[in-house]
């Protein structure tokens, strides 16, 4: 995490000077499971960025002037109380907000430097590059195989051998293959909640996305399934960029490299997870992390 200190803006450093004279070592008593040197590429360029992004649902402003950079091969966590705009922000990256009527957006969202709201951007293509996993596991009422084969079929893969190859690889990447290899052609709805969520991850991975957006992926799961998903995320971060919205601060602290704290549609603080959870620059961040509100 040598570059994470550079990420802290001058403002935040000033903030931490003002706010924190005598601060405990860690605010949350959490053992960091993440190993800093875990075989991920050291060069981690900016993959996603938002610049002065504001968003309105009708007259109601949901995001105001959010700017941040998300790096490849990293896990970025977005935390904050309910209704703070973190999910809305996440959905700006694959333009899922487009589905809601009366949404207005200003500012920019960049994928590899290209504005995803640009006039010539094909939303379908964008969503193949930026995959998404939802809060509640939502496998289609089809077989396990057909779920994972959904995206490859959309992009025109018809050869059964090739499809099988893609499906198996995606299931393996999602650490699910061993568990489901005998029930590939049975209904996905028969799987457990944790398996269903990993199936949804496999389904997203089958499209070979560059970014995986995860909207509270573990909130409907038990602790063991949650842990498996977290392990999986760290494994996936070796090859792709992951952004996770979570209500669970322990999860953010355990799994992420950088954390952004949202409150009432504003990005209050963004920095390395270590800093956010041990030396937050803003008192509101500290209040939230220590459980004083939200």
């Amino acid at each position: 995490m040598s570059d994470s200190i550079e990420m802290m803006s001058e403002e935040e450093q000033v903030g931490s000077r003002v706010n924190g004279p005598a601060r405990p070592e860690t605010l949350l008593n959490i053992e960091r499971v993440r190993v800093p040197d875990d075989g991920r590429p050291i060069d981690r360029p900016v993959k996603l960025a938002s610049k002065h992004l504001s968003l309105w649902y009708g007259p109601k402003q949901a995001l105001s002037d959010v700017s941040l950079e998300i790096r490849n091969y990293e896990i970025t966590a977005l935390i904050g109380p309910s209704g703070c705009g973190k999910s809305t922000f996440l959905r700006a990256f694959n333009r899922m907000n487009d589905l809601i009527p009366n949404v207005r957006i200003t500012g920019q969202v960049l994928l590899d430097g290209e504005d995803v709201y640009g006039r010539r951007v094909d939303v379908v293509e964008l969503r193949r590059r930026v995959g998404m996993v939802f809060q509640k596991p939502n496998p289609f009422p089809k077989s396990v195989f057909e779920n994972v084969a959904y995206a490859p079929r959309l992009s025109g893969v018809k050869n059964m051998g090739r499809l099988t190859e893609i499906v198996e690889k995606a299931l393996e990447r999602a650490a699910l293959f061993e568990e489901v290899k005998d029930v590939l052609h049975k209904s996905a709805l028969a799987l457990s909640g944790g398996q269903q969520q990993r199936l949804c991850i496999a389904r997203a991975l089958a499209a070979e996305p560059e970014v995986l957006l995860m909207d509270e992926p573990c909130s409907a799961l038990d602790p063991i399934s949650t842990l498996r998903i977290e392990e999986l995320m760290r494994e996936l971060a070796k090859s792709i960029c992951i952004v996770i919205v979570t209500h669970n601060m322990q999860q953010a602290a355990r799994v992420s490299d950088r954390t952004g704290f949202f409150l009432l549609g504003e990005l209050i603080e963004f920095g390395s997870t270590d800093d956010i959870f041990t030396r937050p620059a803003d008192s509101r961040t500290e209040d939230y992390i220590t459980g004083r509100f939200g």
Partner: peptide, 18 residues
């Protein structure tokens, strides 16, 4: 039909019609 199916499908890069 739950909206989560529609969302799931759209998020995988399918068109509205697909």
């Amino acid at each position: 039909v739950p909206d989560s199916y529609r969302e799931g499908s759209l998020a995988l890069g399918s068109t509205k019609w697909q």
